[in-house]
Nucleic acid binder design. Structure first.
Length: 1008
RNA sequence: GGGGCGUUAGCUCAAUUGGGAGAGCGAUGCCUUUGCAAGGCAUAGGUUACCGGUUCGACCCCGGUACGCUCCA
């Protein structure tokens, strides 16, 4: 049994061609390898005997398969398919960024699997958040936004020895890598952090590799942490020297040399990082390894760059075919090659993410995707000279290269391409607007004789129009300008700081994994929550009291501190599956049990109010405050949930199921649930659909759900083995969700027994049958009424509806009826009353909860009433204007008798500012060279409107309209102003109209 | 989650310090033309997203709501 010598001397002799220009190969083959692999431990030797004789994997697909096969056959690892790259059940995570994500709950001690060893290739995206490789993509040969992570795991099963030995065996015997080119690092310890060196890993590696290939590493490189808090531990990294040739590359390990690269990391999880930064040993030790497939393939295929492997070739070819660019040349500093790498990487990432249910948007992960798409589009347009949407045409190439490993790609390809195209078109529009803005800024700079685009402009282009700084720079360059980049960076930093400073704080109860372990130590049994569906008052015993840091034996009333109580059993529902938690109380009554206690003096009864219920592993935490008395562990009492709240939640949850079915019937079979939220006030349902619901469709959906309520369909829920449940025709499961086995089936209109008895009956397609662990009504009639209150877009291709049931739905219906009759009555009103009634009803409609259909009907009914008010207003305005003009004509006639050029000052009745201006126009038509000032008192509104115009001749003499009206306005308690040629003003005291007229006359004379 | 920006005629967008809401395209009508393309003249089309506030006066300033874009976490 030998490792390297069995192979032909490929890796050493056939040298890697340099990416940019081929340097001469080394002139010699490496010396024969002297190293002899030590015998594997008995534990690990048997399963892989055939692998040394089997065909060595070379293509990416074979390499991927070999990894999985090795661990499955080697030691009973279970193949756990890649979880979605969009983590549906972990809001703390933007994208799945490591293989261990789907096992996070296991490491945290909150979840269990029915296996202790797992293997897979995980779809990962690193862009945004803690791991952000986006900016590096394209510039080098090994950063990717999307990549596959091969991994194997032990959950409290094997540890360092097996992990390292199997890893070595896989690399050297299955993949045939030269052990003389492998290096391993081990954790050197950190006295400051109280961490011992990992001498076990060191010794293991020294038994496999030459001693000078086994290197110590520090906290940064060899101690892995999941996040600020959480599971962590020392790790050992395996590095590979691409050059080889007998050299010792130890110094290049972890030094950034692209030829000596980390290929596999084995993490030994044995601690938990607490919020106070201290480390606590975990109850069970785990292994978590990760090896980047793309890198491994480049090593095995003996390519210098990840992009030179068969994983990328089809995508590059698609880019070339679509854009007409010259073929990919593999050079690092060539713009066209950079564009190839960026586009290829990004389209892979987008295709995977969109397939798994994400979509570009303006926040969160959708925003990251938008940025990725735009970056790819820019490289395509600027460098490769494409016009119009083109990324969408690359989707099939990604499907072709990865569809084999990820079967979900092909069915989604069409939808994904469409989403990408829409987003490309949208970006085109944004670009156009930004371009116009840039032209403005550039023109300003040039006309001012400058050569530098101001930092403010560059920042605004970026911040408001999404123009990346490098794009602004390129465009400035083309216009012969530069950009104040330093100033721009400063503004960006200031904006970031502002955004950070305003960040909010989180509240809630921290319940770390070792608290769960402690509960087990204390012999507290898992909470029996079988009663949660019935929700009946339950006699329960208080088993543990968690105060946020420790477990207490007793606790005194204190409304300010939040506690978590664990009972032996509970009727309460913990927040899960989009249904919020129950509220309730736990009461003890000591007075009956023990006579003469101190507690008796203080009333005896103790009350714990439960504000939230959460699951932690097998335990149910009842989070709340002790309002009265004192409580101790072991004490018995009564657990009671808030019944009204529970009933409202049940109604909303059952209605959500009925809604799901109705939507499918009305909007098409492709309607797919994307999420839902059920609480005591409303229900919210997100689903994938191409188009918005029309009003008629909303009405139809309501009709169908209400029909289910009116016929009082019975609801049944029962646990069924998962495989059997999946056979039921018409059953719907949520995308990306993991279901337990057995799974609970909730059916409306047929019993679960009937479904299981005849799973393939086509009848079931017309019923709501869902996998669901929530609380439901026993029959639909209890929901009383269903009203869909709003429908809107959440992201491209995703719609969100809100709906009400029960009393709230009836109230919405009642309010709508009231509003409609008011509209009918309003048609009879006119004048001021009509206007205020319209405003009032509009405000009412805004503040009330109304059905979407009712709201639209109200708007439609109100429309003609609005028209009427509008017409009346226009007519009144016109009449006022006409009246003012008529008066003005009379005044003009009178004034014509005076000497030409005499300023005209006069009063007009019943004119507002606009009418006065019309009057002035009429007068000016007659006397083009005469200063004119009109005013009009309005005793009802306690106002005096004033307007004036001055010809140029008067202005030259110092009679400016602005000053003139001011003089008049001051005489009647007002103010005003305007330009020299026309001005308006107003006074507040109509009784002083005479004084105002006199003041105006006097002012004109003083300038005359 | 927190910022920034925007919302004006059917469309694309203007509107100087708060002082009389405009342009181009489109629409409609008429004229010119054998017809088409086009041209000429004229007309209609606005609660300046919505609700409040400040002011003599608000598209403009302030606050709130809705929707959209965008940046940062």
């Amino acid at each position: 049994m030998c490792a390297a010598p069995c192979r032909e001397p490929t890796n050493g002799a056939r040298h890697v061609p340099r990416a940019a220009g081929n340097p001469p190969s080394p002139s010699h083959a490496p010396p024969p390898l002297l190293y002899l692999a030590r015998p594997m431990s008995a534990h690990s030797s048997s399963a892989s005997n055939q692998s040394s004789t089997a065909q060595r994997p070379t293509s990416a697909a074979e390499i991927r398969k070999a990894f999985i096969d090795f661990f499955v056959s080697k030691a009973g690892h279970t193949f756990a398919p890649s979880s979605a790259v969009v983590p549906h059940d972990d809001p703390t995570l933007l994208f799945t960024n490591a293989g261990m994500n789907q096992f996070k709950d296991v490491f945290l001690g909150r979840g269990k699997r029915d296996y202790t060893r797992a293997v897979n290739t995980q779809k990962c995206i690193r862009a945004g958040g803690k791991h952000n490789d986006l900016e590096d993509v394209g510039k080098d040969t090994y950063h990717h936004t999307f990549f596959e992570m091969l991994g194997n795991w032990s959950f409290g099963d094997y540890f360092k020895q097996e992990s390292i030995r199997w890893g070595f065996e896989l690399l050297t015997k299955v993949y045939g890598l030269d052990p003389n080119r492998l290096y391993a690092t081990w954790f050197e310890g950190n006295p400051a952090a109280g961490l011992e060196p990992d001498l076990e890993a060191k010794a293991l590696w020294e038994s496999l590799l030459p001693k000078d290939h086994v290197l110590p590493g520090n906290m940064k490189d060899n101690f892995w942490e999941m996040g600020e808090t959480g599971p962590c531990g020392p790790c050992t990294e395996i590095h590979y020297d691409r050059i080889g040739g007998g050299r010792n590359a130890a110094k290049m390990v972890n030094s950034g040399d692209p030829d000596v690269l980390e290929i596999w990391n084995h993490v030994f999880i044995q601690f938990n990082r607490e919020p106070d930064r201290s480390l606590k040993p975990l109850p069970a030790k785990h292994v978590d390894t990760g090896m980047g497939l793309e890198r491994l393939v480049s090593v095995i295929q003996d390519k210098r760059s990840n992009y030179d492997t068969d994983l990328w070739a089809p995508v590059f070819e698609a880019i070339r075919a679509r854009t007409g660019a010259r073929p990919y040349g593999g050079k690092l500093d060539d713009h066209i090659d950079i564009a190839y790498r960026v586009i290829a990487d990004h389209i892979r990432c987008l295709t995977m993410a969109l397939t798994d249910g994400a979509s570009p948007s303006n926040e969160g992960r959708g925003y990251v995707l938008r940025r990725i798409l735009r970056r790819a589009v820019r490289h395509g347009h600027q460098t490769l000279g494409v016009r119009g949407p083109f990324l969408k045409d690359l989707v099939p190439a990604v499907v072709a290269s990865l569809g084999g490993a990820f079967p979900e790609l092909a069915p989604a390809a069409k939808r994904v391409a469409q989403l990408i195209e829409e987003e490309e078109v949208q970006f085109g529009k944004t670009l156009e607007r930004g371009l116009a803005l840039f032209s403005d800024a550039a023109a300003r700079v040039k006309s001012a004789g400058g050569r530098t685009i101001a930092a403010e402009d560059a920042f605004r282009l970026h911040d408001t129009w999404g123009f990346p700084i490098d794009l602004t720079q390129v465009m400035a360059e083309e216009a012969g300008l530069t950009v104040d980049v330093a100033g721009y960076e400063a503004l960006m930093e200031a904006a970031r700081e502002k955004s950070r400073a305003a960040g909010g704080s989180e509240t809630g109860m921290h319940f770390p994994p070792d608290a769960i372990a402690k509960l087990e130590e204390l012999n507290v049994k898992p909470t029996d929550d079988h009663g949660k569906f019935a929700g009946k008052p339950t006699a329960a015993t208080l088993m543990a009291i968690w105060n946020g840091k420790n477990f207490d034996e007793h606790v005194e009333a204190d409304s300010s501190s939040l506690l978590a109580f664990i009972f032996d059993k509970t009727p309460m529902y913990a927040e899960m599956g989009g249904q919020i938690a129950d509220h309730g109380t736990f009461r003890t009554d000591r007075a009956h049990g023990h006579g003469g206690d101190i507690e008796r003096a203080s009333g005896g009864n103790a009350v714990y109010e439960i504000e939230d219920v959460q699951r932690a592993g097998q335990y149910v935490l009842h989070i709340g405050r002790l309002k009265h008395g004192r409580m101790s562990c072991g004490e018995a009492g009564q657990l009671m949930l808030a019944r009204d709240r529970r009933d409202a939640i049940r109604a909303n949850h059952s209605a959500t199921h009925a809604l799901n079915l109705a939507l499918r019937a009305v909007a098409g079979d492709e309607v797919e649930q994307k999420g839902s939220l059920v609480d005591d006030e409303k229900l919210r349902f997100d689903y994938a659909a191409k188009a918005a619901l029309t009003l008629a469709q909303i009405a139809e959906v309501e009709k169908r759900v209400n029909a289910a309520i009116d016929t009082n369909l019975a609801i049944d829920a029962r646990e069924v083995p998962l495989a059997k449940a999946r056979e039921i025709s018409g059953v719907r499961a949520v995308f990306g969700e993991r279901y337990p086995d057995p799974v609970r089936v909730v059916s409306i209109g047929a019993t679960v027994a009937e479904l299981v008895a005849k799973p393939d009956s086509p009848k079931w397609h017309e019923l709501s049958i869902e996998f669901c662990g929530g609380t439901h009504l026993t029959s639909m009639g209890e929901a009383k009424r269903f009203v869909l209150v709003s429908e809107g877009g959440l992201a491209a291709g995703v719609r969100r509806v809100f709906a009400l049931t029960g009393a709230r739905a009836l109230a919405a219906q009642f309010a709508a009826e009231g509003l409609m009759s008011r509209v009918a009555d309003a048609a009879k009103l006119d004048g001021e009353a009509l206007v205020t009634e319209i405003t009032d009803m509009t405000k009412m409609a805004e503040s009330l909860e109304l059905g979407a259909v009712a709201r639209a009907e109200f708007e439609r009914a109100l429309e003609p009433v609005r028209e009427k008010a509008k017409a009346a207003r226009k007519q009144a305005e016109g009449a006022a204007r006409d009246a003012a003009v008529v008066q003005a004509r009379g005044i003009v006639e009178e004034h014509a008798k005076k000497p030409a050029g005499t300023p005209l000052v006069a009063m007009i009745n019943g004119a507002d500012a606009a009418a006065l201006l019309a009057a002035i126009d009429a007068a000016r038509a007659k006397f083009a060279d005469t200063p004119i000032l009109f005013l009009s008192p309005d005793f009802d509104a306690s106002k005096v409107a004033i307007a004036a115009t001055c010809p140029k001749s008067a202005i030259d003499k110092g009679l400016k309209a602005g000053d003139w009206v001011k003089a008049a306005a001051q005489a009647c308690g007002g103010a005003g102003g305007g330009r020299p040629d026309t001005a308006q003003a107003g006074g507040k005291d109509p009784s002083k109209t005479r004084e105002a007229l006199d003041a105006a006359e006097a002012f004109a004379k003083s300038k005359g």
